[in-house]
Each structure stands twice: as structure tokens, then as C-alpha cells.
């Protein structure tokens, strides 16, 4: 079964690429808009170095935004989730802020923070923060009460309660949030770069699109997608390693 699945996956990808190449060469699609895969590959070789530099720029901003959203999301989620009054009061606000498209405040963020890395990091952070916050809050609320009672009966201080019980108990949710948050952070950074960037992959892709450089645009898109998938897969791998106790 697995072999047949793999074979089917590979065959479909190859068939799609082949059909695409054929259609482009036969002139069925306008190569101005849909360049053949070989043209994309050539374009990739041409823009390779610059694209990698732009990718590094984007990923650097994403990394900062990501660290900020994980730290802030987990810390705030722990505090808000474990204090009943805070949780009940803030929950609807958090859900609403999570759901509202943040793109609406993007113009204002750019207005205040200007062009460059700051708005990208800020916007990426608020994108990544909320999924993590929502998951962590829920997880803290749902921690088995018995475990908290056990810890109290063994004389746990407040600090020990957070550090030795609540935090380890929510590890699976934190990891799930980290996976979601990563994609959100990258999305936020790319959006800012497209909207008001002067550097980075989002800016590069917008520039290619505005310049009708389809092969280069496709190559850049493929590069960002591949990088994103690779990072998420790596995170999944880490996830499996860290949650071995769940079985």
C-alpha cells in the first residue's frame, strides 16, 4: 500500500509537470503567464543567489517574530489560563482578536513603524501569537485538577506548580500551537513585505509579479513553499520526540 501510495504521488507530480511542460511548449498556455517548468528551473538558476538572500532576510524576521510569539503566547496563556477571573473576562476578547483579520490594521502599523524589519516583526508576532495563546489557554484550563491537587499536597510553591506541573502538562498543546504559529508568523512577515517591503521574499515576489517576470516569480514561490514545508516537517519531527510520553 505504502509503495503504491508513494508511486501514485510521484507519478502524479511527474505527470502534472509533464503536462504543464507540454502545454507550454505547444503554446496552449501563454508562457507570459504560465511558463514551462524548464523555464522556471532556468529562472531559478538565474535568481538563485539573490532569492536565497531574500529568503534568509524573510526567515530572519520570521525567526524573531516566532520566538516573540511563542514566549509571549505561552507566558500569557499560562497566566490567563490558570487564573479563573482573568480567563473568564479575557476569553471572548482573545477569541475575537484571533478571528479578526489583522490585515485591517496593517496600514496603520506601517504608518507608525515605517518600512523595514520592525513592522514585519510586529505583524508576524501578532499573527503567530494568537493561535498559540488560544491553544495554551485552553490547555491550561483543561489540566487534570488532580495533578494540581497532588502537587499542592506535596507542598509545591506557586512557582513549582507552574514549572513542574502546568508547563509540562501543556507541552503537547504548546507544540501544536508552535506548528500553527510558525506558518502564521511567516505569513505575517510575507504580507508586510508584499504590502510595504523593501527587502525579503514577499517584496521580491511582488516585484516579479509587477514586472510580469513569471518564470522568476514561480521559482521564488516554489522556494518559499519548499522552505516552509521543510520547516514544518522539522517541527513535526521535534514534536514527536518531545511528546513520547503520550504514546
Amino acid at each position: 500500500m505504502t509503495l503504491r501510495v508513494r508511486a501514485l504521488q510521484l507519478a502524479s507530480i511527474l505527470a502534472a509537470l509533464g503536462a504543464w511542460e507540454g502545454a507550454a511548449r505547444a503554446g496552449w498556455v501563454d508562457p507570459l503567464f504560465v511558463p514551462a517548468p524548464t523555464a522556471v528551473a532556468i529562472a531559478f538558476a538565474r535568481i538563485g543567489g539573490a532569492a536565497l538572500a531574500a529568503l534568509a532576510d524573510t526567515l530572519g524576521k520570521t525567526a524573531v517574530a516566532y520566538v516573540l510569539s511563542v514566549v509571549l503566547g505561552v507566558a500569557a496563556g499560562l497566566v490567563v489560563g490558570s487564573v479563573r477571573l482573568l480567563r473568564e473576562v479575557l476569553n471572548p476578547f482573545v477569541i475575537a482578536l484571533y478571528g479578526i483579520p489583522k490585515i485591517l490594521v496593517l496600514p496603520w502599523i506601517v504608518l507608525v513603524l515605517g518600512f523595514g524589519a520592525a513592522p514585519a516583526i510586529f505583524y508576524g508576532t501578532i499573527h503567530g501569537l494568537f493561535p498559540i495563546l488560544v491553544l495554551v489557554m485552553g490547555a491550561v484550563r483543561d489540566v487534570d485538577r488532580t495533578l494540581v491537587t497532588v502537587a499542592r499536597s506535596y507542598g509545591a510553591t506557586t512557582w513549582q506548580l507552574y514549572w513542574k506541573v502546568l508547563l509540562p502538562a501543556i507541552v503537547p498543546s504548546v507544540l501544536a500551537g508552535m506548528r500553527l504559529g510558525l506558518v502564521f508568523c511567516l505569513l505575517g512577515v510575507l504580507v508586510v513585505e508584499m504590502f510595504a517591503g523593501v527587502r525579503g521574499m514577499g517584496y521580491v515576489m511582488s516585484a516579479f509579479a509587477n514586472g510580469f517576470q513569471a518564470p522568476e516569480l514561480f521559482a521564488a514561490t516554489a522556494l518559499v513553499s519548499a522552505a516552509s514545508i521543510a520547516i514544518v516537517l522539522a517541527l513535526d519531527h521535534l514534536n514527536e520526540k518531545l511528546s513520547h510520553w503520550r504514546g
Partner: peptide, 18 residues
């Protein structure tokens, strides 16, 4: 709670799964 004098075993074991 005074863990130097009293220890409690709870009905559902309450083990830390991690």
C-alpha cells in the same frame, strides 16, 4: 499542606504522565 508530616495517596493515582 505539610509534606514533612503528611503524605496523601489519591483515589485516581494522579501520576504525572510525562
Amino acid at each position: 499542606p505539610d509534606p514533612r508530616r503528611v503524605a496523601t495517596v489519591f483515589q485516581d493515582a494522579g501520576l504525572f504522565p510525562w
